[in-house]
């Protein structure tokens, strides 16, 4: 649904986005991670047809964005990082103005606006948007991104300014959009937030995509020490004998504790073998990499 091919954007001779090629399938909720200034927002601006790439192409639903920006804008929704509205108008008036750019008649517009304001809990709010809090503006931002019932939704830092209740509602909304088969691309530098709602992520650093996949896939790329191997930590009540299994690559034993590097998760086989030898297993687990730590190390670079 979203495809970029060698997408590049230069500002003053330096690459804001550098040779970005990736693909996001329909119905996927994709998290676009990276530190501030990594090029996430610039990538999204190219994907929504607001700026032109220096090189490369991007496609939404098979439509090349640079060639047909209006066709693309017809089927996408976009929440900018610093979403802004007309302060002299109410939420309803703002949404109605935006809705007029799409093929909707007055009745459709009215119904859609009513549904969306209800969805973001701004129904019944009569004050002008100029008097809104940041959180309320962010909610309205989500509503305006959905005004045309888009196929693809781009959300740039969507939880910024939201209170915990707002964040929870936002998560529910993403889940609902995903269930409806919509493709959602969420740009954020907050890993914990992306982990909750996204199935797959891409990590952008200095304009380059350095990893893409599930959070675990990306973590493995960031910490390649074990590669595809599984690190198993084992502790028994008795001193450990030699552990043998065809999948084992290496074993480090220290009394009743051992760290096993294996080609696959062989925990059940190990437990069966040790139990057969009359040993009691106190603990056995797969050591997962410290994902937060790994991302933080990337952000600090």
């Amino acid at each position: 649904m979203i495809r970029t091919e060698h997408l590049t954007k230069d500002y003053n001779g330096s690459h804001a986005v550098d040779d970005l090629s990736m693909e996001i399938d329909q119905g996927e909720v994709f998290g676009f991670l990276g530190p501030n200034g990594a090029g996430k927002s610039t990538t999204i601006l190219m994907l929504v047809g607001m700026i032109e790439p220096t090189a490369g192409q991007c496609y939404i639903d098979g439509i090349e964005v640079a060639r047909n920006p209006l066709k693309v804008k017809d089927i996408i929704g976009y929440l900018p990082e610093d979403v802004g509205f007309y302060g002299n108008m109410t939420a309803e008036q703002n949404l109605d103005y935006y809705a007029r750019f799409y093929p909707m008649d007055a009745a459709e517009r009215t119904q859609r606006i009513r549904d969306l304001l209800d969805l973001v809990h701004l129904d019944g709010v009569t004050q002008k948007v100029g008097e809104y809090s940041r959180g309320m503006k962010q909610r309205l931002g989500l509503a305006q991104a959905l005004i045309n019932d888009p196929k693809v939704i781009f959300l740039d830092e969507p939880t910024a300014n939201l209170d915990p209740e707002g964040v929870r509602e936002y998560r529910d909304l993403i889940a609902r959009l995903s269930d409806e088969g919509k493709t959602v691309m969420i740009s954020s530098h907050i890993l914990s937030e992306v982990r909750v709602v996204c199935r797959t992520v891409g990590l952008l650093v200095k304009g380059r995509l350095i990893a893409k996949g599930t959070i675990e896939d990306v973590a493995r790329v960031l910490d390649p020490a074990d590669g595809d191997l599984v690190r198993i930590v084992l502790e028994t009540e008795e001193p450990l004998p030699a552990i043998v299994d065809p999948a084992i690559v290496s074993v480090e034993t220290d009394g009743n504790r051992a760290t096993i590097l294996a080609k696959s998760d062989i925990r059940s086989r190990i437990v069966t073998s040790l139990s057969g030898q009359g040993l009691h297993v106190r603990e056995i687990s797969v050591r997962t990499p410290d994902i937060e730590g790994l991302f933080m190390s990337i952000y600090r670079r």
Binding site: M50, P80, G84, F85, Y86, G141, Q144
Partner: peptide, 17 residues
């Protein structure tokens, strides 16, 4: 004014030249 209150970006996201 549209640049200052960031409404220009929201507007440019619509299918309008």
């Amino acid at each position: 004014r549209e640049k200052e209150n960031h409404s220009l970006k929201t507007l440019l996201a619509r299918p309008v030249f």
